[in-house]
């Protein structure tokens, strides 16, 4: 996970195509190492396709530019410099999405929160309750599908009482959701109380002294990618 953070930061620090190419190579290696089918990783790009096109065109298209144009269509021209800039930003988006897609495809929620806890550990020295925060994240993740189900049930139930969620301006629509949000939140608070009882009954007393069922282990490949990432970070920052 730390790699992904560094990866993302690096991407934003990169100035030129050369640096971008290095990161792309790293991404490619990571994808191979993860053994996730390339098709799946690329699927994540579908969601941002529109943004990519928009970015490219926004930079590339000029109205009546003074400089030389690649193509002209009346007042609209495609400017080579703009095209390059657009391509650069688009490439950054592509690599960013690839990286995060890879993360979510290869990591279970437990591993994610585990990694977060590991990263936060140095903060424990400053009395930050890292174990508890990680637990909160795990529990939040666990309840996302359950809460979504409950929300759907409440929406359907209120619809059966004649509620409409598609009428009126933004304010009216927001107000229409009150009969859904209130019970949802009331239930969530009630559930939080019960969960606290259940957790205490199972001897939860905070993050100290807890062992883990599945310890995550860094393999050789993980280390290689980590080192590669750090190297690129350094190269970009210092040399490029």
């Amino acid at each position: 996970m730390g790699i992904v953070f560094a990866y993302a930061i690096t991407l934003f620090m990169v100035d030129g195509f050369a640096g971008m190419a290095l990161v792309a190579v790293l991404a490619g290696l990571a994808i191979r190492a993860s053994r996730v089918p390339v098709r799946l990783v690329l699927r994540g790009l579908r969601a941002v396709l529109f943004i990519l096109m928009f970015t490219l065109l926004a930079h590339a298209i000029r109205i009546n530019p003074a400089t030389v144009a690649l193509v002209r269509l009346g007042p609209i021209a495609i400017d080579p410099d703009g095209l390059r800039t657009g391509a650069f930003f688009a490439a950054r988006i592509v690599l960013l999405v690839l990286g995060t897609s890879l993360l979510t495809l290869t990591t279970t929620p437990v591993q994610l929160t585990d990694a977060l806890e590991r990263i936060m550990r140095p903060l424990a020295r400053f009395r930050v309750p890292t174990g508890e925060i990680a637990m909160m994240l795990t529990v939040a993740l666990r309840f996302i599908p359950t809460t979504a189900e409950e929300a759907e049930k409440i929406v359907v139930a209120q619809t059966a009482r004649g509620a409409r969620f598609d009428r009126g301006g933004p304010v009216a629509r927001a107000r229409a959701y009150v009969p859904v949000l209130v019970p949802l939140f009331v239930n969530l608070f009630r559930r939080a109380d019960e969960l606290a009882i259940a957790m205490e009954s199972r001897c939860y007393r905070g993050g100290l002294g807890r062992t883990r069922l599945n310890q995550s282990v860094m393999t050789g490949v993980d280390w290689a990618i980590l080192v590669g990432g750090v190297t690129i970070f350094v190269i970009n920052g210092v040399l490029l």
Partner: peptide, 17 residues
């Protein structure tokens, strides 16, 4: 809703007012 009323399971979880 005006002709057919539907009461789901555990409808008390939908009270809000």
């Amino acid at each position: 809703p005006g002709t057919v009323g539907l009461v789901f399971q555990r409808p008390e979880t939908q009270l809000f007012a």
